[in-house]
Simulated assay, not measured.
Amino acid sequence: MQGEFNGLKELILNSNPSAYYVHCFAHRLQLTLVAVTKKHNEVGDVFNIISSIINIVGASCKRMEVIREKQYARIIEGLEHEALQRKDQDIENSMSLLKTSKEQFKMMRENDWESLLEEVQLTELDDHFTETSTELLLCVACLNPSDSFSAFNKEKLLHLALFYPSKFSIVDLMVLGDQLDTYIIDLCGDDEFSGIEGIASLVEKMVKTKKNLIFPLVYMLIKLSLLLPVATATVERVFSTMHIVKSRLRNRMGDKWINDSLVVYIEKDIFDKIDNEAIMKQFQNMKTRREQL
Rank of each mutant, 00 (worst) to 15 (best):
E92I: 05
G58E: 05
L213W: 03
M242W: 00
F163P: 01
K38C: 13
T232L: 15
S150Q: 12
A161V: 07
I76V: 12
Y20Q: 01
N6H: 10
I222R: 00
M108A: 11
N144A: 13
S150H: 11
N153Y: 06
D172A: 08
A35R: 07
I170W: 05
L122R: 05
N153R: 14
D272H: 06
A26I: 07
L117P: 00
S101A: 15
N55R: 13
F163L: 11
E197I: 15
E65S: 14
L13S: 06
E114F: 09
I50H: 02
I76K: 05
K156Q: 08
R86E: 08
C188K: 07
K102P: 00
I76C: 10
L79S: 04
T288C: 11
H40S: 14
R248W: 08
Q121M: 15
M280W: 04
E236P: 01
K223S: 11
S150Y: 05
S146T: 12
Q179G: 01
L143V: 03
N6W: 12
V140I: 14
V264Y: 05
T288Y: 06
T37R: 11
R68M: 12
V207H: 02
I214Y: 11
L122M: 13
L157M: 06
H159A: 11
V207M: 14
I54Q: 08
Q292K: 10
D260P: 00
D45G: 03
K211F: 12
V245Q: 01
V235W: 02
H159Q: 15
R237T: 03
V36H: 06
D172Y: 04
A83R: 04
I274K: 03
V171E: 13
Q121V: 08
E42M: 09
D172G: 02
L180W: 04
V263F: 05
R74Y: 13
H159N: 14
L116D: 13
L224C: 05
